[in-house]
Design a protein around this nucleic acid. Structure first.
Ligand SMILES: NC(=O)c1ccc[n+]([C@@H]2O[C@H](COP(=O)([O-])OP(=O)(O)OC[C@H]3O[C@@H](n4cnc5c(N)ncnc54)[C@H](O)[C@@H]3O)[C@@H](O)[C@H]2O)c1
Ligand SMILES: NC(=O)c1ccc[n+]([C@@H]2O[C@H](COP(=O)([O-])OP(=O)(O)OC[C@H]3O[C@@H](n4cnc5c(N)ncnc54)[C@H](O)[C@@H]3O)[C@@H](O)[C@H]2O)c1
Lengths: 218, 218
DNA sequence: TATACTTTGTGACAAAAGTAACAAACGTTG
DNA sequence: CAACGTTTGTTACTTTTGTCACAAAGTATA
């Protein structure tokens, strides 16, 4: 069962897309949004949208659509976007810096409250108001501040040790950008973002595409 | 049918993970790798690995496993990782810079051959040996060099116009990091990496987790 | 060679996800 | 208010994906 307290995983992952469209529509003062609308924006059929929303228990009005603000508010609550979520980020390299400086995450309630690195040259530097701290402070800080999320942007060979430190610090959710497998206790959730793997899958498409399109002899 | 020339999409996306483990094992001179091994590394059951590999037509040896180098080589060919794929990247901000400077993509055959931005302050700058070019050069350059992939790392409000320019330049595959929907002709493949949406889905888990774990009264 | 292990490939089955269809609900228009 | 178009919630169905189980194929050992 890949369910997550009642809602299938693929549905859950579509909700933020709907949410984003609703916010946009709310800004434009559009009072109602239809499943057709939401579907076109998300690239899924309207029936899919209705099914996804039926897992939640917020209802729309036949002939009209969904109340824009009400549904946006409900999704915000369901996804916990209004709740503040505090995170630490380890590995202040190019990617870590980009994630730290990205303002979009704050709109979803994420606060990156501390940065860590092993490189003495980086420790003490400031990135977006936050100072880069040495690794030995990680476990204690995470524990003291009850940090909810850990973001890993170190090279893969260092990722496991960072993950273990986060676990020691009581962190229960890890967002991992290093291309490797992490071993953690069962109660810890690891979500990996493997961009290189996505690229490799895309690479296959590019090949097949040029094969199909180039020798147009047939 | 979400098949991709015979192989289901989820299987295709697991292949790079297997590939990575095989490369590691090859470096350690391990001659054979079993489906159990591959599965543990990828976080899927061994039967899943065998099924995925059965879509390709490279076979393993019962009682032994898969020939490490042979399978790695076959996956490399199947995924087209050895083929050079030329890409342009538009939007040399924090994320664009990180992607440009990341050496890992080159291992998968990706060459980012040109950078573009609209900001006069960035045009002419150099990022990892590549000069940032003005937007008006995009279409012509893409067409002349038969660029295969476009990478979009501009703010969402600018993404559609960039995508359209890429299409005009004959680009057939777009890797989009802006959190928005892109409308392109059917023959163009868009793969979107929506990190904020992933975060929002994670946010839901964090909420549910703290609810389940904190009030342990029941 | 016989026997005791491993491990593969696959076909049958189970679960999950997506699609389509439609009655019921609603608004609008004349 | 009746007729018509729109849109919902849900059910039934199809397709896709994942899991399991096992015969067959291989290795190792005595
Ligand atoms: N940059 C990208 O576009 C990109 C794309 C895909 C994947 N990734 C992955 O993301 C991760 C980070 O990539 P990057 O480009 O930012 O790398 P980077 O080399 O720029 O940064 C890595 C940082 O981690 C620090 N670090 C190394 N070992 C550490 C340790 N044991 N503890 C704490 N800090 C440590 C380094 O000092 C450095 O600051 C890598 O795993 C990479 O494979 C990056
Ligand atoms: N940085 C992150 O961690 C992160 C995370 C999730 C999503 N994103 C998305 O990735 C994209 C880039 O993020 P970023 O943090 O690098 O932003 P950024 O503001 O640092 O960089 C954006 C760049 O795009 C350029 N640009 C703007 N309009 C343009 C146009 N019309 N044509 C060409 N170039 C243009 C800007 O000059 C700037 O250099 C955004 O869409 C953002 O939402 C970023």
């Amino acid at each position: 069962m890949s369910e997550t307290y009642g809602i299938p995983r693929p549905s859950l992952r579509r909700l933020p897309i709907y949410y984003r469209h609703l916010i946009e529509m709310a800004e434009r003062q559009v009072p109602y949004v239809s499943s057709k609308d939401l579907g076109q924006n998300a690239g899924v059929p309207a029936s899919q949208v209705r099914k996804d929303l039926s897992y939640l228990h917020e209802y729309g009005r036949p002939g009209v659509g969904y109340d824009t603000k009400a549904l946006a508010g409900y999704l915000e609550e369901f996804l916990g976007l209004a709740n503040d979520k505090e995170a630490i980020l380890v590995g202040v390299g190019n990617l870590g810096r980009a994630l730290t400086l990205y303002p979009g995450f704050a709109q979803y309630g994420l606060q990156i409250i501390a940065l860590f690195d092993i490189d003495p040259a980086k420790i003490g530097q400031t990135v977006g108001d936050r100072e880069v701290l040495p690794m030995f402070k990680l476990v204690d800080l995470a524990r003291r501040l009850k940090v909810q999320m850990g973001i890993i942007t170190v090279p893969p060979h260092a990722a496991q040790e960072v993950a273990s430190a986060m676990v020691s610090g009581g962190i229960k959710v890890i967002w991992n950008f290093a291309p490797c497998k992490l071993t953690v206790p069962a109660e810890v959730l690891v979500k990996s973002e493997d961009l290189a793997a996505e690229l490799a899958a895309l690479s296959h498409h590019i090949m097949r595409r040029s094969q199909v399109l180039a020798p147009a002899t047939e």
